[in-house]
Design a protein around this nucleic acid. Structure first.
Length: 442
RNA sequence: CGGGGCAUAGCGCAGCCCGGUAGCGCAUCUGCUUUGGGAGCAGAGGGUCGCAGGUUCGAAUCCUGCUGCCCCGACCA
């Protein structure tokens, strides 16, 4: 992509409403634009990151055996009356009426709808276990949205719903998502810690929040320091291995970890002092087992092997990609801007033509741009007629992992300078070797 | 939902107290110079001063109402 043709409305000054660093940087880098309180448009750069995040979420959901579908944003109030939540959900639910005065709502979550879909088709235990998920926009009319996309009213959510014949099966389904979540966040460069959590209006009695530690986190969290060094299950983990999966979950829940709501000061105080971590955390995922809370009132039943009907055992599993984008920035930035982890970067390489219009730098820049593009590497080529300082500042701000500086100075020696955004390290590489060098970093 | 604050050019702000032709920096456009860390000079364009009433000869400025947004708290993914 040529920057001269891209839509990247960067801001040199910080909009005054942006309080936390991720919000500031997302506005400055031209990733999002606020359209109303807690409602954001994703601009091209932001959309690229959001898509990377969603792609990782999908890969790990699929790996764990979940199956993607897509449910609508608008739901009928009648559906929610079946579970009793239409009255219970309160003002957070955006209620609307269509032209026929029918009561509708913009979905804050989809338990009722997925249960309706399930009961319409599934009759036998032989079709279980089943886990259906989708990525869809949700709306929760928060009293006070804030922190940009970290806590917006409209937000993208991956929500998965598991169905099992019995509790043992449901536990395994829960464990699959548990492990998938560990992998999902790790692939984005984030260290997540599962913590015992309140179940909230979703209901149920087994629930974990996946928290990443960040100074600007919304809630206070307490955990054992050893979690920070735990290994995350590899891509070869066998999701059908019931005992193996349970062992992973047991290990990741063996030590103390709790959000402030579930905090037990006495238990925490028993940890050795150097193992106590009190920090701020950002919730990036939440998983629940809630049994028959919806299947019973909504009559989602399956016939078991012995011939009797059972309300299906359910769980639900959420991840907020739009929140994750902000959370990743909270974890990876410096004074100059964002430092994207490679897997979610909007582009992998930025080419900075330091003297636009100069035959030598133009030639070298164009050649490298073509070469990298041909290799399938996502490149943002800064071909604008701007001064070098401005290009450096833009590249640092938007956080592309690799910057290639092509200017007369190094080009005189047949070289370009390659800078790693994450640590600022620089290396002079011959123009001929630059593409090879960069493709090896992928 | 309680408390506080803000609304003037794309962004950041001054002007308001004390009413009298709407300003500054950055950004944008044109020209020339410049080209390794947000360039210089010269020129130009861009504003229903959030909206609606009121007071006044005259309102960005004073008064009333409304709307939007932000911050703190309570609540939440």
């Amino acid at each position: 992509m040529r920057l001269s043709r891209f839509f990247l409305p960067i801001l040199r000054e910080t909009p005054k409403e942006a309080e936390i660093v991720s919000h500031r940087l997302m506005l400055r880098a031209g990733m999002v634009r606020q359209e109303a309180a807690g409602i954001y448009a994703f601009l091209p750069l932001g959309l690229r990151v959001l898509r990377k995040v969603c792609a990782i979420v999908r890969e790990e959901q699929d790996r764990a055996g979940a199956i993607e579908l897509l449910m609508p944003t608008i739901q009928s109030a009648d559906l929610w009356r079946e579970s009793g939540r239409y009255e219970a959900y309160g003002k957070e639910m955006l209620r609307i009426k269509d032209r026929h005065e029918r009561e509708m709502l913009f979905g804050p979550t989809n338990e009722e709808m997925i249960t309706e879909i399930f009961r319409a088709y599934v009759r036998s235990y032989k079709d279980l276990p089943l886990n259906l998920y989708h990525l869809q926009w949700k709306f929760r009319d928060e009293v006070r949205p804030r922190f940009g996309t970290m806590r917006s009213r409209e937000f993208l959510m991956k929500d998965a719903y598991s169905f099992d014949i019995d509790q043992a099966g449901a536990r395994h389904s829960y464990n699959k998502m548990f492990v998938a979540y560990l992998r999902t966040f790790a692939r984005m460069g984030l260290k997540s810690i599962p913590m015992v959590a309140e179940t909230g209006p979703i209901g149920g009695n087994l629930s974990h929040e996946f928290i990443i530690l960040a100074d600007t986190g919304e809630s206070e969290v307490f955990c054992h320091r050893d979690y920070l060094d735990f290994d995350v299950p590899g891509a070869d983990v066998n999701f059908d291995d019931v005992a193996g999966l349970q062992a992973i979950v047991d290990r990741w829940t063996s030590l103390y970890a709790a959000t402030s709501e579930k905090h037990e000061p006495d238990a925490y105080a028993k940890l050795p002092g150097d193992k106590q971590v009190t920090a701020r955390g950002i919730e990036v995922g939440h998983i629940f087992y809630f049994g028959t809370k919806y299947s019973e009132p909504m009559k989602a039943v399956v016939t078991g092997p012995e011939g009797n009907e059972h309300p299906v055992q359910m769980g639900s599993y959420g991840i907020g990609p739009t929140r994750l984008v902000a959370a990743i920035i909270e974890a990876f930035h410096d004074d100059a801007g964002i430092k994207w982890p490679d897997p979610v970067a909007p582009f992998r390489v930025a080419i900075l033509n330091l003297k636009q219009g100069d035959a030598a730098t133009n030639g070298a820049s164009e050649a490298l741009y073509r070469d990298l593009t041909a290799r399938g590497i996502e490149v943002l080529y800064d071909d604008r007629d701007e001064r070098p300082g401005s290009k450096f500042a833009t590249a640092d701000l938007i956080g592309i992992p690799w910057q290639v500086m092509i200017g007369p100075r190094s080009l005189a020696e047949g070289k370009v300078e390659i800078k790693r955004r994450a640590d600022g390290s620089r290396e002079l590489v011959s123009t001929a070797a630059a593409a090879d060098f960069l493709s090896k970093q992928a």
